[in-house]
Amino acid sequence: MHSSLLRVAIGYSVLFTAQAAFASGLYLVREDGSEITIYLKSQSPKDATDLLVLIQGSDCNSVAHNTLINEQFSQVLPEADVLTVEKYGITSDLSWDRSSDVHPDCPADYIENDSPERRTADYIKTISQLKEGGIYERVFLVGGSEGAMVANMIAAKTDFVTASIALNGGGRKFLDTILYNIKHTSNSKEQEKEDTEGFTSFAMHVMNSEPFELNMGDHGYAWWRYMLASDQLEILAQVDNPLLIVQGGKDINVSPEAVDQQIAKLAELNKTNVTYKPYPDMTHSFDGAEGESAVGQVITDIQSWLAQLD
């Protein structure tokens, strides 16, 4: 199955100041004793009071090697400190590989333990610890694809988020997202029918089974179970901070129509904190109509939206 279904590249680099050194000295562990690996990048010679939290998509790669976060999306707030958090079982020792839908060296611990719920808990623990240090006055979240869902979950569960941005995060139900992707990537109607029936059967099995050993698209039972059971509208309904939802109209990984429907539902719920910014010609990977990168325009628009909040 396509691991690219929920994938946005957002990455990391290191330039330490006193604040970054403070974060690098943090030793944070999960309830099972495993370490949470974090990176903090300072972008300004001044001590920052803003924390920009960048949340990658669903691929099995180290955020430490993902240049799009450090070199581009970090510029959403160029004077903020940038925080990224590795997924369970992944460190910078894992080589960068985007050559296929699965990573040839994807760690078993990641496949078994990773899920949006796990990632959300790791981010909340990390940000809470940094906030307790008294350095950061404002916290901003930017997440893409699966990272958009995680950003929404963090915002829904906490009161420390100043504003958040969800990029190409899709609609309400993940099953619908998968079926949409199958429809737009199948070579024939026969293949679409076969893949649709096969995945629907798989989804029913996961939803009606106790945990079992599974590796599909570099994801295990915990990830698939959570994704298939989640309702993103319910998550968004609990977000009260200013939220910008960005969606490309040419996205074949998640359904732009489902996002439109979700935005309409949020309006019915009087969620006036939500701003919707569609890009009709943009793909899931932020490419424009002619294949040019739309990342710069998206970043500029995010900066303009954030400026209006001040």
Rank of each mutant, 00 (worst) to 15 (best):
E213I: 10
Y39C: 01
F160D: 00
H205I: 11
E257Q: 14
G291K: 03
N215Q: 08
Q72K: 08
L233R: 02
E213D: 11
F202N: 06
T200D: 00
V102P: 00
S186E: 10
I69A: 15
A18N: 13
E117V: 09
P211C: 08
T158I: 12
L94Q: 03
D81M: 13
D176S: 12
I182L: 04
Y136A: 04
D109F: 05
L243S: 03
S42E: 14
A267E: 12
A267Q: 11
N152E: 10
V53G: 13
T272H: 09
Q19E: 07
L28H: 09
M207S: 04
L5C: 06
S13K: 15
Y180F: 15
E190H: 02
I69V: 11
R225T: 00
Q129A: 13
A20W: 13
D195Q: 15
H284V: 03
D176W: 04
M207N: 06
A21I: 08
N187H: 11
Q191H: 12
T17G: 11
A121K: 14
Q232F: 03
A264F: 05
R172F: 00
V102Y: 00
F199R: 02
P78A: 06
P242C: 08
L26R: 07
A229L: 15
P45G: 03
S42T: 08
V63C: 01
V8P: 00
L51K: 03
E132G: 10
I111N: 00
L40C: 14
F286E: 08
F140H: 01
F202H: 09
G220I: 00
I178W: 07
Q232R: 04
E290K: 10
L6V: 12
D81W: 14
V139C: 11
A203Q: 04
G144K: 01
C60Q: 02
E31Q: 12
D287F: 11
L28D: 01
K193V: 06
I263Q: 03
E257L: 12
G33T: 01
V259G: 05
T17I: 08
G134V: 08
Q129S: 10
A307R: 14
T275A: 13
D109W: 04
S99C: 04
K277H: 06
A267K: 15
A267T: 09
W305K: 03
E86D: 15
V206P: 00
K46I: 13
S100Y: 07
S4Q: 08
K250M: 14
D105F: 02
F286S: 09
L141A: 04
V102K: 07
K46P: 02
K250Y: 07
Y221V: 03
Y279E: 12
R98L: 15
D176R: 12
N168A: 05
G11L: 09
L15R: 11
G57C: 04
